[in-house]
């Protein structure tokens, strides 16, 4: 690998000009996102700096428990974030945690068993992050879609219940639609990968001097891995969440 990939602090400082462009547009168009944007910029700098040092340490000591701990932190944060989209679904944190853990765990175990990645922190931690964040977005979309559907289709759900439907029979249409919504960004990006975007992982490898054909092999693996992870995560989250819309008397809350 080449080592000319160093962004100097001065270069980063100049990159702040890019943030300024965004801020100016925001002010000029009265979009009102300046506070959000600044919080985002500051958080990105702090979080990434901390993670940079943490990753350096974890990769240097290369111990399995530390790698697992890092995965746990990533999954925990992803679940916290997914819950924010749940908007009052009871036990949304526990559901998200389980869904993201299974999605990440199953995918990584398969990748390691297939020798596609090695169980070493420099590979496992970034891949966990990629999977967990995609699962998080998918699950968040599922929750939002389910909330809207249970609200908009309230009477239809009631009518199904009144005809003697089980909770699953009354909700299955909504559940399927929510899973579809959760998976659609991953499927869309799988369809357009290479045509529209050169995804982060592949770009990173090419930046680092890896032969693009090899980088592409990795990207294909990542695409498949994200398809598996988002479907697992969406299915688990939706199937665990829909009964929460009903009370113990099988009535809509």
């Amino acid at each position: 690998m080449t080592n000319d990939l160093i962004v100097s602090p001065t270069a980063l400082l100049f990159a702040v000009a890019l943030v300024a462009i965004a801020l100016i547009i925001n002010f000029h168009e009265k979009i009102g996102l300046e506070k959000e944007m600044l919080v985002g910029v500051v958080r990105a700098v702090i979080q990434l700096t901390v993670v940079g040092y943490v990753l350096t340490y974890i990769i240097k000591v290369d111990r399995a428990p530390l790698t697992f701990l890092m995965m746990a932190i990533i999954i925990f944060n992803a679940a916290l974030n997914a819950r924010k989209r749940a908007n009052g679904i009871p036990h949304a944190f526990a559901i998200s945690l389980l869904a993201i853990t299974v999605a990440t765990g199953v995918t990584i175990v398969l990748l390691v068993l297939a020798h596609a990645v090695k169980f070493t922190p420099s590979q496992i931690v970034p891949i966990s992050g990629m999977i967990a964040s995609n699962a998080m977005v998918a699950i968040g979309l599922c929750y939002r879609n389910m909330n809207t559907s249970f609200h908009d289709q309230r009477q239809a759900v009631l009518e199904r219940l009144a005809l003697g439907a089980t909770l699953k029979q009354a909700s299955i249409g909504i559940v399927r639609e929510a899973i579809r919504t959760g998976m659609s960004p991953t499927i869309d990006s799988a369809k357009t990968v290479g045509l529209v975007s050169l995804p982060g992982m592949m770009s990173g490898l090419i930046f680092a001097g890896v032969d693009p054909t090899k980088a592409i092999m990795y990207q294909i693996m990542v695409t498949f891995m994200l398809l598996a992870a988002t479907s697992l995560g969406s299915v688990i989250a939706c199937y665990l969440a829909y009964p929460r819309y009903y009370n113990e008397d099988l009535q809509l809350r």
């Binding site: 219940l161 009144a162 005809l163 003697g164 439907a165 089980t166 099988l250």
Partner: peptide, 8 residues
């Protein structure tokens, strides 16, 4: 569920 199929 059985009840709601009887009392429709």
């Amino acid at each position: 569920i059985a009840y709601r199929r009887e009392v429709s």
